[in-house]
Computed example of a mutant assay.
Amino acid sequence: MEGSSLMIKDYPKDSTPRERLMTEGAASLSNQELLAILLRTGTKKESVLQLSNRLLKNFEGLRLLKDATIEEITSIYGIGQVKAIQILASIELGRRIGRLQYDDRYTIRSPEDAAKFVMDEMRFLSQEHFVALYLNTKNQVLHKQSIFIGSLNSSIVHPREIFKVALKRSSASIICIHNHPSGDATPSREDIEVTKRLVECGKLLGIEVLDHIIIGDTKFISLKEKGYV
């Protein structure tokens, strides 16, 4: 049966697995705590953390739990069908994430590759958009993010906003891209100044700025090819 007397909410707020996940991140939690979040409640005689610990001991850890059936999980006192389904669904999500094919990610080997990745999206924009591509060590695109919209100048392009995402995504390098609504991709003085500033910041952080590409109407200019990166 599934009890409801000792719930996560009954613990001191700053010590619950949920609170720790929000403040410290999911990676800081033990397997027992992560399971406790899924289970939500314990039994009349034990807390949810005690229940999650007993579940792990029964299956000798995650190795056997990942292959458990719903019948095997519900045979544990305190775990009914709803809790078992939640556990199995979470295990399957983890399994699918583990099977993701990272080789399917877009790989950038040249300025042309980077321009092609965003050309259709950016060539007709009526305002300037500054976009950063975050790459792994194989130059595959991990993430693309618009950093700001508006005329490019050194006072509003904050390196901290660009590199904050790079650190969060564990990026090895980045490529900066912005468009010129006029269709003329010729770099301005501000474009060059911003590029140099970002390159210097990247060197300090150990995150290389591979290029800064300006998108025009079906054309582009690489500031790396121009010698500014």
Rank of each mutant, 00 (worst) to 15 (best):
A132Q: 02
D184F: 08
S4A: 12
I37D: 00
E112P: 02
F59W: 08
R63V: 11
K45P: 05
S4Y: 05
L55H: 00
E92K: 13
I37M: 13
F124T: 06
K9C: 13
G3F: 09
V194S: 05
D14K: 05
A36I: 03
G206D: 13
K164M: 12
L210M: 13
G227A: 09
Q127P: 01
T137D: 14
A185L: 02
Y77V: 06
K224E: 06
Y11M: 09
I213K: 03
R18K: 10
F59C: 01
R63I: 11
R20I: 15
G94W: 11
V141C: 10
S182N: 04
I214M: 10
D217E: 13
L65R: 07
S15L: 05
L38Y: 00
G183R: 01
T218M: 10
P111Q: 07
A84E: 01
D113H: 14
G42D: 11
G216V: 10
E33R: 14
Y228K: 12
P159G: 02
R189S: 12
H129E: 11
L142W: 00
I215D: 01
R20F: 12
S47W: 01
K219W: 04
K196D: 05
E193Y: 10
L88R: 07
L49V: 04
E92P: 02
C176Y: 01
L56T: 10
E193M: 09
R63F: 09
H178Y: 02
Q50Y: 11
T186G: 00
L39V: 09
T16Y: 01
A114F: 06
I73T: 03
T41R: 10
G216D: 06
K116I: 08
Q101N: 13
S188F: 06
K116R: 06
N179E: 12
E33I: 15
F117E: 03
A84S: 07
R54A: 01
A68W: 03
Q145A: 14
L133T: 01
V131M: 04
M1Y: 10
E71N: 14
V229G: 00
S182R: 09
S110T: 15
K224V: 06
G61L: 04
L205H: 03
E193R: 15
Y77S: 04
T74K: 11
N139M: 09
Q101E: 12
F148K: 08
P12K: 07
M119A: 04
E190P: 02
I87T: 00
G3A: 06
E200W: 15
D10S: 15
E208V: 11
I87L: 07
G150I: 05
F148R: 09
K168T: 13
